[in-house]
Design a protein around this nucleic acid. Structure first.
Lengths: 143, 143
DNA sequence: TACTAAATGCAAATGAGTTGCATTTGCATA
DNA sequence: TATGCAAATGCAACTCATTTGCATTTAGTA
């Protein structure tokens, strides 16, 4: 009871069992500047753990648990279907993907910010969207 | 030489070896009203073949070949990463996906038809895009 | 019609992700 | 602080989609 405040001080969302592997996965996601694959998260977490070996299946279970709690969102790169995870920070980001070098460039703003998407989809209530642009980045652009 | 015209009469794009399995895959794709998975194409082609058994690996190889020739485009449903194939008909279609029943509703038009997407992505030349809307269809909408 | 490179079938391999089960561990409570 | 148990973990085996090597067949040409 008296530890209630202490628990909140941890900075971790409540209502989850905070094992060391979960803490590490969470830390990895917080430091990430881009969505990551499960395998990337797995390697980065093991690096944080220094010597501790993790089971990949545990990473998948942790990510599934985080997703269920609304902590993490799971998406796929549209181009190739790669599944990636990122911390749910409230905003959403779209990417432009270079067809040559496969680099991803985050768009500063969502092109739909001021567009009503639901106009044409009669009967359908739009709650979200995903967008990916394709083309060539300035390094790969053919001249 | 004298068969040149006959070959063109087949209606098949030239420059590819037209085996019976390729003809069937092509026919399946032409009849399709939606992008299909490799396994769906596999079953539908076998149905067309009436008794002839196909190797699934052949279907994958045919689809890869068609894609390389620019005949087919391979994409993924963004939501779940399912890989699907469709004939390259020049136009592109976006879908609204119901989060409840997973039905896909094709949008009649592309919201970007008259929007310049490249404005904000300085240095990046946009050549294409993918969009998926999420929400609830009229049957599943919560009231 | 015969030849050859490309296409096919088959079976085995790969890679991502999942699952069952025995063991370990947060964390709530006594 | 010690204790108990539900939840989390590790491991290995499994599934599912896709790929690959290799021997055989076949379309299209010379």
């Amino acid at each position: 009871m008296k530890d209630m405040e202490k628990k909140e001080e941890t900075g971790y969302p409540q209502g989850i069992k905070w094992t060391k592997q979960r803490k590490n996965v969470y830390a990895v996601l917080q430091e990430a500047t881009e969505p990551l694959t499960a395998v990337q998260i797995y390697h980065l977490s093991e690096k944080l753990a220094e010597g501790g070996e993790y089971a990949l299946s545990t990473i998948y279970r942790i990510l599934a648990a985080f997703e269920e709690k609304g902590l993490v969102s799971k998406t796929t790169w549209m181009g190739d279907g790669t599944v990636v995870y990122e911390l749910n920070r409230g905003e959403h980001t779209h990417y432009a993907v270079c067809l040559e070098c496969h680099k991803r460039i985050a768009l500063q703003s969502c092109p739909f910010a001021h567009i009503h998407l639901d106009r044409e989809t009669d009967g359908f209530t739009v709650t979200g969207h995903k967008l990916e642009l394709y083309g060539y980045c300035k390094d790969c652009r053919k001249e």
